[in-house]
């Protein structure tokens, strides 16, 4: 059976694989879409409270993380080009830079969250619960949205590490790089969601 099964599973269809990835990205966008909807509802209901609470966020940190993710999106795209030009070393280097940038993003997130938690600003804390309803919701949404996004960063990092392994092994190469392309697509998604989160949480005050 092994021969026969591998004949079935190794049937290669790059267009199909990319179509699958795009559909998966739709589902991710809808997942966050639900959160954007909830954000919009409460922003409309408690615009004053959202305005006050948003001042607690560090715009510089947010902007820095935006820049980090945008650059990482560029490096992952460049690694696809590198593999198309059959430059395995460059592709691996660019993937490593992407991963390092992702790590930097998470580190900044840790500093941000850590600072807030240090000031007793976390869901359910006595300080937060004593605030007005809209401000409680703002901080709840802040942690929920950025937390879910950070989880996606972690998933994306695991995916990119696996892809880097596949590139190093030569399984992902000049003639078969759909895995890297799909990983890049996913990473752009993670970047894209942040580009929406940043203004919604940090900039609109």
């Amino acid at each position: 059976m092994d021969n026969q099964t591998s004949a079935i599973t190794e049937h290669r269809d790059d267009t199909g694989a990319k179509l699958g990835m795009w559909i998966f990205i739709f589902t991710e966008l809808l997942l966050f879409g639900g959160l954007f909807l909830v954000y919009a509802v409460f922003r409309a209901k408690y615009s004053q409270d959202f305005h006050i609470a948003a001042f607690q966020l560090n715009v510089f940190m947010g902007a820095l993380n935006t820049a980090i993710l945008l650059i990482s999106s560029m490096t992952v795209a460049m690694s696809v080009t590198a593999i198309q030009k059959n430059d395995k070393r460059l592709a691996l280097l660019l993937l490593s830079i992407t991963l390092a940038l992702a790590g930097a993003f998470l580190f900044n997130k840790y500093l941000e969250w850590g600072g807030k938690i240090h000031h007793q600003l976390y869901p359910g804390s006595d300080v937060v619960m004593s605030l007005k309803h809209g401000q409680i919701l703002f901080f709840g949404l802040y942690y929920f949205m950025t937390g879910l996004h950070a989880l996606h960063i972690v998933i994306g990092m695991i995916l990119l590490m696996y892809i880097a392994y596949s590139v190093a092994k030569g399984k992902t190469n000049q003639s078969n790089y759909v895995l890297l392309e799909n990983g890049g697509l996913y990473w752009h998604l993670v970047d894209l969601i942040w580009i929406f989160l940043f203004p919604l949480l940090y900039l609109i005050t």
Binding site: G33, G34, P123, I136, G140
Partner: peptide
């Protein structure tokens, strides 16, 4: 995905009191 995020919000609400 919509129900997925809604269910996550229920969990967050019960564990973290996000409301």
């Amino acid at each position: 995905p919509i129900v997925g995020i809604t269910l996550l919000m229920v969990i967050a609400e019960r564990t973290l009191r996000i409301g």
